[in-house]
Nucleic acid binder design. Structure first.
Lengths: 151, 151
DNA sequence: CGCATAAAGTTGAGGTGGCCAAGTATCGAC
DNA sequence: GTCGATACTTGGCCACCTCAACTTTATGCG
């Protein structure tokens, strides 16, 4: 088994465990994982169209309608008109900004798996993951180029 | 921002991206993420009760009924009687064993974010994540002790 | 033994999230 | 002005998830 293969398995295990913990904490706030994720993406004072949210969530636009409905029903989000009257700009309300802050604290909290590592390991992990994310971005850029080149 | 905090953010980003990719590949096999995960947990020749699957999936027992129904309808799994006639032992069929092997290959495949790292980084990542998972296990043991101590 | 209690699984109700196809309103370009 | 594209919504269908209630079987205790 290669180092990459084993790293992948370990990565998956840590991720799943953390997701379960975060999911439980979010349930206490009355939020699902998807709702919390959407809230995270919506920066205060930077509203964006629903189509943008669909893209960021990698899901169908029709799906976003329902998610926005539920967030709006809870008073976390508002659909504001854009200059283009087809688009609805998703805007955090005051309550949305506040709850988002709590969600950010909650989801950005590293799991025990990471916090219990030595300071040296934590720094090494951060540095390696920085390079890994750079690879991710390069890979995504490759895919975009391929798509536009063949469409 | 601490190294642990930043590592957590990067970790999350890589995990989400990989999940999307894996989800698409699984859809090609006609499997949902949950079904694939359940299949992965069911080792060939090591059947276990449905309650055990509920525990491993961190979900309600009633949920497992539906998941098992769908896997059984596709001929991937069988409900076999145990010595205790209340329990049903989930058992992979031949088709289940075969599809599971494909799922394992698919989900164990490290994402580009990892494979594009240098060999040195890959080994370092594996070593750090091994220690992180050890922390995870220690943390879980702590929780079990706490639960049994106060129940 | 006989009965109470507990455990494993199922069922049904209710809600979230995911897709697709079809529909509406608006925009932009010809 | 008309046509095609774009942004969002709607409705249908399904997977998944929880909870509460139920059936069947096991087990502990008097």
């Amino acid at each position: 088994m290669t180092a990459a293969d084993e790293a992948q398995g370990l990565f998956f295990e840590i991720g799943m465990a953390h997701r379960v913990k975060v999911g439980a904490a979010l349930a206490d706030l009355g939020l699902t994982f998807t709702q919390a994720h959407a809230l995270r993406l919506l920066e205060p004072d930077h509203p964006f169209p629903m189509s943008k949210l669909a893209e960021l969530l990698f899901c169908d636009a029709s799906n976003v309608t329902g998610i926005a409905d539920r967030l709006e029903a809870r008073g976390l989000v508002r659909r504001a008109e854009g200059t283009d009257r087809r688009v609805k700009m998703l805007t955090l309300t005051k309550a949305g900004v506040d709850l988002r802050a709590r969600v950010m604290r909650l989801m950005n909290e590293p799991p025990a798996a990471i916090t219990l590592l030595s300071a040296k390991d934590q720094r090494a992990l951060r540095d390696i993951l920085r390079r890994a994310v750079a690879n991710l971005d390069a890979d995504r850029a490759r895919h975009r180029a391929w798509q536009t080149g063949t469409s």
